[in-house]
Amino acid sequence: MAIGTPEVVDWVRLSAAALEDERDRLNRLDADIGDGDHGANMARGFTAAAERLAAAAPETPAAALRTVGMTLLSTVGGAAGPLYGSFFIGLAGGLGDAAEVDAATWSAALTQAVAGVVRRGKAELGDKTMVDALTPAAETLEAAAGNGAAFGAALAGSAAAAETGAEATTPLVARKGRASYLGERSAGHQDPGATSSALLLRIAAETWGARDE
């Protein structure tokens, strides 16, 4: 199985819908340790990105992802804007001109995108950020792709790793972003950025993995 531009557009569209559904939960998570607008910001950004993709009809998966990145930069507003913007622009860079994406190319692109986020946010594993979900996801995908796993199964494993990583942020003390002002009090709350990252990867697995059958 491989996916093309329409599947990438589907992913963004379904992610926008899922973020709309999860808007309140993400806001609540963010309210615990931040300023409470992560759900609203993400829903706004992805809705705008989906609209722009619908209007623009990009030619390659990379072009679609770049559009998403640029849109997020301009519409999300908080730190998630440049961070997710860097993530999608990194994905686009990793894919290059490929018309179709398979497990190996997606794994390489994801690894590059996560590196971009790490560089932008200067966050490391365990800092209670989206990196805690994205890094295990990229590593799991890389291992699965290396073992020749089916793309759908690899994506599902990657999404599960992201969710586990997001859940594991709960006891951590934030070292980055606004939550770090809370110090020890940030422990006991799941990080909203890690949660939305896991959500995006879950939607990718569901949207694209269904095509395995």
Binding site: N41, M70, S74, T75, G77, G81
Partner: peptide, 17 residues
């Protein structure tokens, strides 16, 4: 950042572009 709706004032946030 770009206004949430046409004609609205610009929203609070920063825009790398």
């Amino acid at each position: 950042i770009d206004p949430p709706a046409a004609g609205a004032p610009r929203g609070l946030g920063t825009d790398a572009v």
